[in-house]
């Protein structure tokens, strides 16, 4: 069984398309177990095994290089190499199988000093705190806990919530001086987050329950990654115990809901 303090982060890499993981991100994840998912997405005209025969050696080579970079930074590394028609489906499957707490949506990151962590009540707080602590334990990282209240009356509740999380982080070894707290009042929490994220380098946020809006416009985390142009660590929601509508009519992933991490 895995150690409950261990934080596992899935790092998907489009391995043959020259996608690189910025050094700063490698450093940020150095205290975690990194599951590198090297994937190669191929068109439907091509059998995955056919692509595998041609590209596997090259992909292995690139993957080994990534592994050595992460290991040099001090992370524990596991790897998966997958040829797929549908990268989203693959990421979802591997994240579940490898029991990952968070998924990295990579974006360029020249420097990483400031990390923003949006906090809501109804989201997977425990794991978010654990993941935030894993990246916040670095000496030079500033953590901003962020809460968007819907109205003035809710501000004090938000402050309580944030101080609770801050205490928890401190207990997990994050230096208190590196934690700041921001509560804003906003009609549109997502917009407020994107604005607040502007002077931060990385967002650590919880994955939301799939909604109709999410299906139409893309998941919140993907939109944040798109608009802030920075890396986003998406903390996965706990698996619904009985979400077994996983039946047949799922020919392929949902339409167009992915901000391509490349």
């Amino acid at each position: 069984m895995r150690n409950s303090d261990d934080v596992r982060v899935l790092v998907p890499v489009a391995v043959l398309e020259g996608q690189v993981i910025p050094d700063q991100l490698t450093r940020l994840l150095s205290g975690t177990t990194v599951v590198i998912l090297a994937y190669h997405e191929i068109p439907e005209q091509t059998a995955p095994e056919q692509a595998r025969e041609q590209f596997e050696p090259k992909a292995r080579e690139e993957l080994d290089e990534l592994v050595s970079v992460f290991e040099a930074a001090g992370a524990t590394v596991e790897t998966r190499l997958v040829f797929t028609h549908d990268a989203d489906q693959t990421m979802e499957r591997i994240a579940t199988e490898a029991d990952c707490d968070a998924v990295l949506l990579s974006n360029p990151a020249p420097i990483i000093d400031r990390v923003i962590v949006p906090i809501k009540e109804d989201i997977n707080l425990e794991t978010i705190t654990k993941v935030a602590a894993a990246v916040g334990r670095h000496e030079d990282i500033e953590l901003t806990l962020f809460h968007a209240a819907e109205e003035d009356a809710a501000v004090s509740d938000g402050e309580d919530l944030l101080s609770e999380v801050a205490n928890e982080l401190a207990a997990l070894g994050v230096c208190r001086e590196h934690i700041s707290r921001v509560v804003v009042v906003a009609q549109n929490p997502l917009q407020a987050l994107i604005e607040a994220a502007d002077d931060h380098d990385v967002v650590v946020m919880g994955e939301e329950k799939p909604t109709l809006r999410g299906r139409l416009f893309g998941e919140t985390s993907d939109r944040v990654a798109e608009q802030t142009v920075g890396p986003v660590l998406v903390v996965r929601r706990p698996l619904d115990t009985e979400s077994d509508d996983s039946d047949e009519l799922d020919a392929s992933g949902d339409p167009g809901d992915n901000a391509d991490p490349a």
Binding site: P48, R80, H85, L249
Partner: peptide, 12 residues
């Protein structure tokens, strides 16, 4: 080799 080939075509 440990390399995986994703299955992506459902019943439909």
């Amino acid at each position: 080799s440990g390399t995986e080939l994703e299955r992506t075509i459902g019943l439909r």
